[in-house]
């Protein structure tokens, strides 16, 4: 799923095919910034995709002045670290962690019912992220993390106590 930026607005998500079509019909200019998960930063569509770009109805896609891009002070070329979050107005912030694998593993390997809550929140976080709703995704991911830690923490304590009891019981039985 791609997100793209035009006139200072974030748009999308759109599928690979949709973005290709937008490019072909000229709605997406080679200079428009695009991003999808896995990319560390927004890039001009021409660099990120390799799609065929059709002539825009408004203006030919000349490399004169990519407006939305040039107006934003910190262009991606000036960023020092490759992990700098994408810059305004495309405020993605830091990458949103995905706790789903850990939540599933925690639930299957020990820790009900907090593990289920962690699964629910991580699934919601991934859905929100896919819809481009990053604030919501960040909040849900935070809740998933909390529940994951609670489930693993409580699970460990319960396991230790429980195995301790069984061992003590076993020893007592042998005496």
């Amino acid at each position: 799923m791609w997100h793209y930026a035009q006139d200072g607005q974030r748009k999308g998500p759109v599928s690979d095919d949709d973005l290709r079509r937008l490019a072909a019909e000229g709605s997406l200019k080679p200079s428009d910034l695009v991003w999808r998960e896995g990319m560390t930063d927004w890039l001009p569509a021409s660099e990120a995709t390799g799609f065929q770009f059709g002539a825009s109805s408004a203006a030919p896609a000349a490399p004169s002045a990519p407006p939305a891009y040039a107006q934003q002070p910190p262009s991606y070329a000036q960023q020092s670290s490759p992990y700098t979050p994408p810059s305004a107005p495309l405020d993605m912030g830091a990458p949103i962690p995905d706790y789903l694998p850990w939540s599933i593993a925690a639930t299957l390997l020990c820790c009900l019912p907090a593990g289920i809550a962690a699964i629910v929140f991580s699934v919601q976080a991934n859905s929100a992220k896919n819809a481009g709703n990053f604030d919501e995704a960040r909040r849900k991911a935070g809740q998933a993390k909390t529940w994951l830690y609670v489930s693993v923490g409580v699970g460990l304590v319960v396991m230790l106590l429980y195995f301790g009891l069984i061992m003590v019981g076993g020893l007592a039985g042998e005496l």
Binding site: G38, L100, P101, I116, S122, V123, N126, S127, K129
Partner: peptide, 20 residues
């Protein structure tokens, strides 16, 4: 390196439904 679980949101819901 960065790691991604490569699970689509829809498949995430399927997993949740499967566990419950």
């Amino acid at each position: 390196r960065n790691w991604k679980s490569v699970v689509t949101p829809r498949f995430g819901w399927v997993l949740l439904a499967a566990v419950v």
